[in-house]
Design a protein around this nucleic acid. Structure first.
Lengths: 134, 134
DNA sequence: GTCCGTGCAAAAGCTTTGCAGCCTT
DNA sequence: AAGGCTGCAAAGCTTTTGCACGGAC
């Protein structure tokens, strides 16, 4: 999960432009989109560099990754609406027996022209087992 | 996004067992875990079959995929806590200017021994542009 | 000069798909 | 019989990594 230790960060044109680009858009780009944009300015740019820089920017707290989580899909047979508890230490996912806040959808609808169908709510933290072993 | 059209579903031992397995556990398995479990019963089982059956079960509404969303990561430079609006039609992600419900964490804490650090709330629906073009 | 960042290419990891044969209906 | 389902293997796609060279400090 953590990147290799580094004693300091240096500047690079590529990384600066990636951050500028992310700050100038509200489109939540993919790495590939960023690569395509910057390829015009840096004809030799490689996707690996984009990924490495995004990772560095995340370490610096300047960028967030969305849909952050496990790298592979997970499945469940509980098809009723329910929330999840996700342990940031061991990665386990637990069903959360908390009532569904239907009114969140109502409140959201008043703030946007978006047609809201449902919401997804996940709580992140540390599970009991991991808490005890730390 | 949609699977190939199929006029009917048939039974298969593999698919029935996958569903049984998912119903018997609360561990939100990965496809690979399911494969490993069932390999004992079906020595010739292939991962492709597991994926195809999971996809079928989702079509039948019997199974959910968690972390459902785009297949690649997305990034953003807005590192302040905020919610997202996600369009189920075009896949675009929008920042949602809705106040953060800090009290959700408080309420959740009363229901579990989990140490809750933060929550992630995404609203799913149809964006204005897609609504108009339908 | 040190060692971080880059480009290139290969590899890794999860998921999908083409195909021929088997099985359900 | 028709056509969905399977196993196998290959391919697909996103992301990561090894290496040698160039650049920032």
């Amino acid at each position: 999960m953590l990147n290799k230790e580094k004693t300091q960060f240096r500047q690079s044109k590529q990384r600066n432009r990636i951050l500028e680009l992310l700050r100038s858009t509200d489109s939540h780009p993919t790495a590939d989109w960023i690569y395509a944009q910057l390829k015009k300015e840096f004809p030799k740019l490689s996707l690996g560099t984009v990924y490495r820089n995004l990772s560095t920017l995340i370490d610096q707290g300047l960028v967030n990754k969305i849909h952050f989580g496990s790298t592979f899909d997970r499945f469940e047979a509980n098809t009723k609406p329910h929330y999840h508890l996700i342990c940031e230490s061991c990665g386990k996912i637990f069903d959360f027996n908390m009532k569904i806040y239907e009114n969140l959808n109502e409140q959201a609808k008043q703030l946007t022209t978006f047609t809201i169908n449902y919401h997804k709510l996940d709580f992140y933290g540390i599970c009991q087992e991991c808490s005890q072993s730390e």
